[in-house]
Design a protein around this nucleic acid. Sequence first.
RNA 1: GCGCUUGUAGCUCAACUGGAUAGAGCGCCUGACUUCGGAUCAGGAGGUUCUGGGUUCGACUCCUAGCAGGCGCACCA
Length: 576
Amino acid sequence: MNIFETYLDKIIDLIKKANQDNLITLPENLSGINVDIPPSKFNCDMSTNVAMVLSKPNNKSPIEVAEIITNIIKENDENIDDIKIEKPGFINLKFKKIFWNNFLKTIINQKNYGSNTLKDSKKYLVEFVSANPTGPLHVGHCRGAILGDVISNLLTFNNHKVTKEYYVNDYGNQIIHFTKSVYFRIREILFKEKFPIDNKDLYPGDYLVDIAKNIIEQNKGINFDNFDSISKDLTKLSVQESIKLIKFNLNNLGISHDNFASETDIVLNNEVDQVVDKLKKDQFVYLGKIKAPEGEDSKNWVEREQLLFKSTDFGDDKDRALQKTDKSWTYFASDVAYHNTKLKRNFDVLINILGADHAGYIKRITSVVEALSGDKNKLICKVSQLVKLIKDGQPFKMSKRKGDYITVEDLISEVGKDATRFIMLSRSNDVELDFDFTKVKEKSKDNPLYYVQYCYARISSVFRNLDKSINDKIEVSNYDFKYTDDEIKIFKKISQWPKCVDVATAKLEPHRIPVYLYELASEFHSYWNMGRADVTKRFIEKDNTIKDEKIVFLKVVSNIIKNGMNIIGVETPEKM
RNA sequence: GCGCUUGUAGCUCAACUGGAUAGAGCGCCUGACUUCGGAUCAGGAGGUUCUGGGUUCGACUCCUAGCAGGCGCACCA
């Protein structure tokens, strides 16, 4: 139940009727009309700009139009307690208490209050993480992983069908280097040969020793004398071990993918040849040369004739190579094939979550998806910006070369899954984020996770003191409550939850959820503290009972916190 | 050189997809526990939304030209 949508519809119906009665003229397009949350300084519950939008077609000032419309609303809506016209031409509505009572009655036992059940259910594919299977996840992967997971949760909450997918880049040179690294670690263990630490192509990390041990133990039949004779099998085993590590990391972050798509499979199934043929037929592919870019590095430029995709047709700044000079496919080519397999699976919308360092890739991949599907909006890419780690006020640098980067495991064991998720989500995904270890560990107001959880725990404690459970269904027969403005202030906030979910989903901006929950928690804490001075603001009566209006109040607040925290993927403990 | 992205209070960030006098937290200052959980609350100070132009009833938001930071820019993945 989104009261803002309900009222927008109501107002549009009213002005359409007024138009038929020749009271006002309507513009061709009504899409500029909004129903919004008014700034808090106005003592009202809802506001609309309708008069401003209708001002021009009616040749009247917004105030004059507003006067006509307020009269119409007054005559037709029994829920309005007060209606005011404000300066530029806003119409501000204030509801009667009965409106809020009915509102609570509607949402009290709604399990997914806030989810949008009206819109069509769509099939989404969300691809995220897709880190190279050459070792455990580090902190850099973390934000994108959480972002993708929560976007999926948001879509699911809104009744969409979501498939979460991980693209495994188990093909190409890096995997060969990785497999060789495993091989040398195996020889180190079996034959006491020193690992060639100076070879810069190899992966030095200690986790390779464990991978090597596992492979030796589980494959006693294999002869490790010659790399070439076992390279194929060893690649498979090494990638498997790597994925096992990554799944373990993801699991500790509370993330599980539905599907792991393998690049090798795509190449071996000739998907690349097929998709390139298709693009050729549609004239999106040609044999040509990429020109050197303007600037300093043009001196060493070597022009090569190769198979190119015309991404410039779609706004990219240069065409992109599909084939290397040795005729093997580029990474881009197999990714094109991969995206073609996504299209073949008939999803309505594809979403890719990328790290900031891959933002330059977006144009070419959206271009090719448009070329293949004819739909410009088929693929949406979201970028997760860098996380700056800070400890004791000092930035924390990682070095991949030395292999001394901070892993997801380090992070989780240090600050925990919930705090990591909440903090990583609390900022818009396209701004850099400071992640302060010291603060995130603090159990105080500095840490918004605990602030919101504490709200839930406080509500739970009321139920506990009454020998009830916060999870009980609420049965109230009479909704004739006498709430004051202090409670209604929170109901207003509650009425805004569906709007928050709606915007967060439409824009794929999950940070709006923790921001909203923080605000709701803040208003609740504020109310709670009123109880110190004012006995009527307390929940539990002297005879250890609770009034129906108070239990309804607690229930709707706790429901939203529970739902919101579920979307974020963090716990709501009843005791802290 | 080009592309993408960010720029809002001393610091970290919001601002509901163009709305009203731009909001929170931290830090600073003052106050509240014989209270249903003080991991909390009440109050104060703090702003030319990077700059210049434009679009309109109305701009932090859109367009344009700059400035500053970040990321990226061949057959790596």
